[in-house]
Design a binder for these strands. Sequence first.
DNA 1: GCTAATTGGACCGGAACAGTACTGTTTCCT
DNA 2: AGGAAACAGTACTGTTCCGGTCCAATTAGC
Lengths: 153, 153
Amino acid sequence: MLKLSKLTDYAVVALVRLGQKNEVTTSPVLSRSTGIPEPTVAKVLKILATQGIVTSQRGARGGYRLAHPLEEISIASVIQAIDGPISLTTCVDGGDCDARSTCGLGGQWDMVNAAIRNALSAITLADMKNHTVIDRLGGLQAPSMPSGPAATA
Amino acid sequence: MLKLSKLTDYAVVALVRLGQKNEVTTSPVLSRSTGIPEPTVAKVLKILATQGIVTSQRGARGGYRLAHPLEEISIASVIQAIDGPISLTTCVDGGDCDARSTCGLGGQWDMVNAAIRNALSAITLADMKNHTVIDRLGGLQAPSMPSGPAATA
DNA sequence: GCTAATTGGACCGGAACAGTACTGTTTCCT
DNA sequence: AGGAAACAGTACTGTTCCGGTCCAATTAGC
């Protein structure tokens, strides 16, 4: 249902919390302060470390730390780190579309995909912490349907 | 990985095809002209009928027909009809967030969600048929990262 | 009134994901 | 040098959801 995985949600929460304290923090501490189960938060941080979002310090007194300030980490980065590349359909980016010849809409999905990616790239973790999203995107919280006759869900 | 279901993809293809012929069309015919398996296209049309995107005519000589012109059907409508409401996280729109008190980012996901929904609502099925998306959204296909230091995937 | 064609709704199998646990490696402190 | 603390990697299990199939209800035409 066009929803991102829970892991991504957890990742954002953990990263924002990590950005608030500007020091090396361990998984258990992050687990306690966020409410995320300890093994899960560890897993998330682990993935984020491999993607360069956070840096890890092994051994005793180790932990994780943000590799970049919150302002420089976009939501899109986190999503791509956890869930993989943002590809709405398999056709996007040269995927093997079994009905490419008959479907009629050449690479139009790429445009939709780009629109999403652009919207996600415009929002940073700092925007999630503060409440500055409204200012930067200006009224995006308007009712979704432009002329909305269909899908009254 | 933030990808929408195949059914939604099929739905868009079927709807665009349905919009090209402006008459009642049966599932088998749509299946042949789109390359989508017959049972699948039938299922998709079925769902779209319940959501009011298409109107159905039962019995012999029945079939489906668009309830609105392609220009009035947004991608968001189709996604919501097939995949359900666009909710990136469970927190969105009053969902039960088990860690609402500790996660720290109140309803910030709503903003992200709204951004996505807005981007999706700006694109209609007519845009998918023609290639007018670029004109209407103006350069959304730019490289995603704004300052992109992280997630070099 | 009967037959054929077509939609409507329910059911089932399979894949993907979330979450958990375990073991190994690295580093600090005593 | 020894022990403890913490990350790194791998494997496993349970659940959820998607995708596809089958049967029942309905209507036009003869």
